[in-house]
Design a binder for these strands. Structure first.
Lengths: 120, 120
DNA sequence: CACAGACATCGATCTCTGTCAATATAGATG
DNA sequence: CATCTATATTGACAGAGATCGATGTCTGTG
Protein backbone atom coordinates (compact mmCIF):
# COMPACT_ATOMS: atom_id res chain seq x y z
CA UNK A 1 0.00 0.00 0.00
CA UNK A 2 2.80 2.39 -0.78
CA UNK A 3 2.05 3.52 -4.31
CA UNK A 4 -1.45 4.86 -4.70
CA UNK A 5 -0.57 7.59 -7.17
CA UNK A 6 -0.43 6.67 -10.84
CA UNK A 7 3.04 6.78 -12.31
CA UNK A 8 3.67 8.39 -15.66
CA UNK A 9 5.26 6.38 -18.38
CA UNK A 10 8.00 8.58 -19.81
CA UNK A 11 6.16 9.02 -23.08
CA UNK A 12 3.06 10.16 -21.22
CA UNK A 13 4.89 12.82 -19.30
CA UNK A 14 5.84 14.60 -22.49
CA UNK A 15 2.26 14.52 -23.69
CA UNK A 16 0.69 15.34 -20.35
CA UNK A 17 1.88 18.80 -19.63
CA UNK A 18 2.82 22.06 -21.24
CA UNK A 19 6.12 23.73 -20.32
CA UNK A 20 5.94 25.83 -17.16
CA UNK A 21 6.22 29.02 -19.12
CA UNK A 22 3.56 28.18 -21.67
CA UNK A 23 0.44 28.06 -19.52
CA UNK A 24 -0.57 27.40 -15.92
CA UNK A 25 -0.34 23.79 -14.84
CA UNK A 26 -3.57 22.29 -13.50
CA UNK A 27 -3.64 20.84 -10.03
CA UNK A 28 -3.83 17.35 -11.50
CA UNK A 29 -0.88 17.91 -13.80
CA UNK A 30 1.19 19.26 -10.93
CA UNK A 31 0.38 16.19 -8.84
CA UNK A 32 1.64 13.96 -11.64
CA UNK A 33 4.92 15.78 -12.13
CA UNK A 34 5.87 16.63 -8.57
CA UNK A 35 6.76 13.03 -7.62
CA UNK A 36 9.38 12.83 -10.38
CA UNK A 37 10.95 16.09 -9.25
CA UNK A 38 10.73 14.98 -5.63
CA UNK A 39 12.59 11.81 -6.54
CA UNK A 40 15.41 13.90 -7.98
CA UNK A 41 15.36 16.51 -5.23
CA UNK A 42 17.63 14.73 -2.78
CA UNK A 43 21.43 14.99 -2.79
CA UNK A 44 21.94 11.24 -2.54
CA UNK A 45 19.48 10.44 -5.32
CA UNK A 46 20.91 13.20 -7.52
CA UNK A 47 24.33 11.61 -7.19
CA UNK A 48 22.89 8.16 -7.79
CA UNK A 49 21.20 9.39 -10.98
CA UNK A 50 24.43 11.03 -12.06
CA UNK A 51 26.49 7.92 -11.28
CA UNK A 52 24.07 5.72 -13.20
CA UNK A 53 23.58 8.05 -16.13
CA UNK A 54 27.28 8.70 -16.60
CA UNK A 55 28.39 5.12 -16.04
CA UNK A 56 30.00 3.37 -19.02
CA UNK A 57 27.33 1.43 -20.86
CA UNK A 58 24.59 3.65 -19.46
CA UNK A 59 23.89 1.32 -16.55
CA UNK A 60 25.34 0.51 -13.16
CA UNK A 61 24.82 -2.29 -10.71
CA UNK A 62 24.14 -1.57 -7.07
CA UNK A 63 27.61 -2.81 -6.22
CA UNK A 64 29.04 0.02 -8.34
CA UNK A 65 27.04 2.57 -6.38
CA UNK A 66 27.18 1.77 -2.69
CA UNK A 67 30.88 2.52 -2.39
CA UNK A 68 30.40 6.17 -3.31
CA UNK A 69 28.35 6.95 -0.20
CA UNK A 70 28.79 6.85 3.53
CA UNK A 71 25.42 5.16 3.88
CA UNK A 72 24.24 1.65 4.65
CA UNK A 73 23.17 -0.68 1.89
CA UNK A 74 19.42 -0.63 2.77
CA UNK A 75 19.47 3.15 2.50
CA UNK A 76 20.94 3.03 -1.00
CA UNK A 77 18.40 0.37 -1.90
CA UNK A 78 15.65 2.62 -0.61
CA UNK A 79 16.80 5.57 -2.72
CA UNK A 80 17.05 3.38 -5.81
CA UNK A 81 13.51 2.24 -5.19
CA UNK A 82 12.32 5.83 -5.04
CA UNK A 83 14.04 6.57 -8.35
CA UNK A 84 12.57 3.44 -9.88
CA UNK A 85 9.04 4.04 -8.61
CA UNK A 86 9.12 7.54 -10.07
CA UNK A 87 10.05 6.19 -13.48
CA UNK A 88 13.47 7.83 -13.66
CA UNK A 89 15.44 4.57 -13.80
CA UNK A 90 14.74 1.05 -15.02
CA UNK A 91 15.78 -2.06 -13.13
CA UNK A 92 17.26 -5.20 -14.64
CA UNK A 93 18.23 -8.20 -12.57
CA UNK A 94 20.95 -10.37 -14.09
CA UNK A 95 22.07 -13.22 -11.91
CA UNK A 96 22.82 -11.93 -8.46
CA UNK A 97 23.30 -8.37 -9.61
CA UNK A 98 20.71 -5.70 -10.26
CA UNK A 99 21.48 -3.12 -12.92
CA UNK A 100 19.87 0.30 -12.98
CA UNK A 101 19.66 2.36 -16.13
CA UNK A 102 18.68 6.01 -16.47
CA UNK A 103 15.53 6.67 -18.48
CA UNK A 104 16.89 9.44 -20.60
CA UNK A 105 13.53 10.15 -22.24
CA UNK A 106 12.05 10.81 -18.80
CA UNK A 107 14.92 13.16 -17.96
CA UNK A 108 14.54 14.89 -21.30
CA UNK A 109 10.79 15.34 -20.78
CA UNK A 110 11.34 16.80 -17.34
CA UNK A 111 13.98 19.15 -18.68
CA UNK A 112 11.68 20.30 -21.47
CA UNK A 113 8.90 20.95 -19.00
CA UNK A 114 11.14 23.07 -16.79
CA UNK A 115 13.28 24.84 -19.31
CA UNK A 116 11.36 25.32 -22.54
CA UNK A 117 10.70 28.92 -23.45
CA UNK A 118 7.12 30.08 -23.82
CA UNK A 119 5.85 29.75 -27.37
CA UNK A 120 3.98 33.03 -27.37
CA UNK B 1 18.99 32.11 11.11
CA UNK B 2 17.08 30.05 8.62
CA UNK B 3 19.42 29.91 5.64
CA UNK B 4 22.78 28.41 6.45
CA UNK B 5 23.36 26.86 3.04
CA UNK B 6 24.82 29.09 0.35
CA UNK B 7 22.41 29.86 -2.46
CA UNK B 8 23.53 29.70 -6.04
CA UNK B 9 23.17 32.75 -8.21
CA UNK B 10 21.61 31.53 -11.45
CA UNK B 11 24.80 32.18 -13.38
CA UNK B 12 26.78 30.15 -10.90
CA UNK B 13 24.54 27.14 -11.23
CA UNK B 14 25.34 26.79 -14.88
CA UNK B 15 29.04 26.98 -14.15
CA UNK B 16 28.96 24.80 -11.07
CA UNK B 17 27.92 21.46 -12.35
CA UNK B 18 28.17 19.19 -15.34
CA UNK B 19 24.99 17.62 -16.76
CA UNK B 20 23.92 14.45 -14.93
CA UNK B 21 24.87 12.29 -17.87
CA UNK B 22 28.32 13.79 -18.36
CA UNK B 23 30.07 12.78 -15.16
CA UNK B 24 29.23 11.93 -11.56
CA UNK B 25 28.17 14.86 -9.43
CA UNK B 26 30.24 15.40 -6.31
CA UNK B 27 28.56 15.40 -2.93
CA UNK B 28 29.07 19.15 -2.70
CA UNK B 29 27.58 19.81 -6.10
CA UNK B 30 24.56 17.66 -5.28
CA UNK B 31 24.01 19.61 -2.05
CA UNK B 32 23.96 22.85 -4.03
CA UNK B 33 21.48 21.68 -6.63
CA UNK B 34 19.08 19.62 -4.54
CA UNK B 35 17.50 22.65 -2.81
CA UNK B 36 16.45 24.15 -6.15
CA UNK B 37 14.87 20.88 -7.21
CA UNK B 38 13.27 20.50 -3.81
CA UNK B 39 11.75 23.93 -4.18
CA UNK B 40 10.12 22.85 -7.44
CA UNK B 41 9.16 19.40 -6.19
CA UNK B 42 5.85 20.32 -4.63
CA UNK B 43 2.54 20.47 -6.47
CA UNK B 44 1.62 23.87 -5.08
CA UNK B 45 5.00 25.41 -5.87
CA UNK B 46 5.01 23.87 -9.33
CA UNK B 47 1.69 25.53 -10.05
CA UNK B 48 2.91 28.79 -8.54
CA UNK B 49 5.99 28.73 -10.79
CA UNK B 50 3.81 27.95 -13.77
CA UNK B 51 1.33 30.69 -12.90
CA UNK B 52 4.14 33.21 -12.47
CA UNK B 53 6.15 32.14 -15.50
CA UNK B 54 3.17 32.10 -17.83
CA UNK B 55 1.60 35.30 -16.53
CA UNK B 56 1.39 38.20 -18.97
CA UNK B 57 4.43 40.38 -18.46
CA UNK B 58 6.35 37.51 -16.90
CA UNK B 59 5.44 38.51 -13.40
CA UNK B 60 2.52 38.12 -11.03
CA UNK B 61 1.58 39.71 -7.75
CA UNK B 62 0.54 37.61 -4.79
CA UNK B 63 -3.01 38.78 -5.24
CA UNK B 64 -3.01 37.13 -8.68
CA UNK B 65 -1.94 33.83 -7.17
CA UNK B 66 -3.85 33.18 -3.99
CA UNK B 67 -7.17 32.76 -5.74
CA UNK B 68 -5.97 29.70 -7.65
CA UNK B 69 -5.55 27.59 -4.52
CA UNK B 70 -7.68 26.30 -1.71
CA UNK B 71 -5.03 27.41 0.76
CA UNK B 72 -4.69 30.23 3.26
CA UNK B 73 -2.65 33.30 2.43
CA UNK B 74 0.20 32.50 4.87
CA UNK B 75 0.64 29.15 3.19
CA UNK B 76 0.98 30.72 -0.24
CA UNK B 77 3.38 33.25 1.22
CA UNK B 78 5.43 30.41 2.67
CA UNK B 79 5.67 28.64 -0.67
CA UNK B 80 6.67 31.84 -2.43
CA UNK B 81 9.40 32.31 0.15
CA UNK B 82 10.73 28.83 -0.58
CA UNK B 83 10.81 29.58 -4.30
CA UNK B 84 12.49 32.90 -3.65
CA UNK B 85 15.09 31.50 -1.23
CA UNK B 86 16.03 28.86 -3.77
CA UNK B 87 16.64 31.52 -6.43
CA UNK B 88 13.87 30.40 -8.76
CA UNK B 89 11.91 33.64 -8.53
CA UNK B 90 12.75 37.25 -7.86
CA UNK B 91 10.68 39.51 -5.62
CA UNK B 92 9.81 43.11 -6.31
CA UNK B 93 7.71 45.20 -3.97
CA UNK B 94 5.82 48.05 -5.65
CA UNK B 95 3.54 49.98 -3.37
CA UNK B 96 1.34 47.58 -1.48
CA UNK B 97 1.84 44.76 -3.93
CA UNK B 98 4.67 42.28 -4.22
CA UNK B 99 5.48 40.98 -7.68
CA UNK B 100 7.22 37.69 -8.29
CA UNK B 101 9.08 36.96 -11.50
CA UNK B 102 10.43 33.64 -12.73
CA UNK B 103 14.20 33.50 -13.14
CA UNK B 104 14.26 31.90 -16.52
CA UNK B 105 18.04 31.52 -16.54
CA UNK B 106 17.81 29.46 -13.37
CA UNK B 107 15.12 27.28 -14.91
CA UNK B 108 17.16 26.90 -18.07
CA UNK B 109 20.26 25.93 -16.11
CA UNK B 110 18.34 23.33 -14.15
CA UNK B 111 16.86 21.94 -17.34
CA UNK B 112 20.29 21.72 -18.94
CA UNK B 113 21.67 19.93 -15.94
CA UNK B 114 18.88 17.35 -16.01
CA UNK B 115 18.34 16.90 -19.70
CA UNK B 116 21.57 17.49 -21.56
CA UNK B 117 22.94 14.46 -23.37
CA UNK B 118 26.38 13.19 -22.45
CA UNK B 119 29.12 14.75 -24.59
CA UNK B 120 31.06 11.52 -24.99
C1' DC C 1 -2.89 60.12 13.40
C1' DA C 2 -6.19 56.29 12.66
C1' DC C 3 -7.55 52.80 9.85
C1' DA C 4 -7.71 49.30 6.15
C1' DG C 5 -5.59 46.24 3.00
C1' DA C 6 -1.52 43.34 1.21
C1' DC C 7 1.79 40.51 2.52
C1' DA C 8 5.15 38.32 5.91
C1' DT C 9 6.42 36.04 10.24
C1' DC C 10 5.60 33.12 14.29
C1' DG C 11 4.34 29.02 16.83
C1' DA C 12 1.85 24.78 16.96
C1' DT C 13 0.47 20.51 14.91
C1' DC C 14 0.46 16.72 11.87
C1' DT C 15 2.41 14.19 8.18
C1' DC C 16 6.18 12.76 5.40
C1' DT C 17 10.89 11.18 4.71
C1' DG C 18 15.82 9.69 5.39
C1' DT C 19 18.37 6.59 8.04
C1' DC C 20 19.47 2.53 10.53
C1' DA C 21 19.54 -2.42 12.45
C1' DA C 22 17.46 -6.61 11.75
C1' DT C 23 15.69 -9.77 8.73
C1' DA C 24 14.13 -11.78 4.35
C1' DT C 25 14.83 -13.37 -0.45
C1' DA C 26 17.12 -15.11 -4.30
C1' DG C 27 20.99 -16.79 -7.01
C1' DA C 28 25.60 -19.06 -7.04
C1' DT C 29 28.60 -22.57 -5.33
C1' DG C 30 30.35 -26.37 -2.86
C1' DC D 1 21.13 -29.22 1.23
C1' DA D 2 24.22 -25.71 3.50
C1' DT D 3 26.34 -21.62 2.82
C1' DC D 4 27.81 -17.29 1.00
C1' DT D 5 26.88 -13.02 -1.35
C1' DA D 6 23.94 -9.32 -3.47
C1' DT D 7 19.95 -6.89 -2.91
C1' DA D 8 15.26 -5.90 -0.94
C1' DT D 9 11.89 -5.39 2.86
C1' DT D 10 10.34 -4.21 7.49
C1' DG D 11 9.86 -1.48 11.58
C1' DA D 12 11.40 2.22 14.44
C1' DC D 13 12.80 6.82 15.17
C1' DA D 14 14.35 11.60 14.53
C1' DG D 15 14.22 15.51 11.75
C1' DA D 16 12.09 18.11 7.90
C1' DG D 17 8.18 20.13 5.87
C1' DA D 18 3.09 21.61 4.85
C1' DT D 19 -0.60 23.87 6.80
C1' DC D 20 -3.12 26.80 9.86
C1' DG D 21 -4.58 30.69 13.13
C1' DA D 22 -2.82 34.66 15.23
C1' DT D 23 -0.19 38.47 14.82
C1' DG D 24 3.23 41.77 12.92
C1' DT D 25 4.84 45.14 9.29
C1' DC D 26 4.40 48.25 5.71
C1' DT D 27 1.83 51.35 2.63
C1' DG D 28 -1.77 54.14 0.98
C1' DT D 29 -5.84 56.97 2.33
C1' DG D 30 -9.01 59.73 4.83
Amino acid sequence: MSKSLPVLAPAELAACCPPLRAEPLSAGQAELIAPMLKALADPVRLRLMSLIASHPGGEACVCDLTGAFDLRQPTISHHLKVLHDSGLVSRDKRGVWVYYRARTEALASLAALIGSPADH
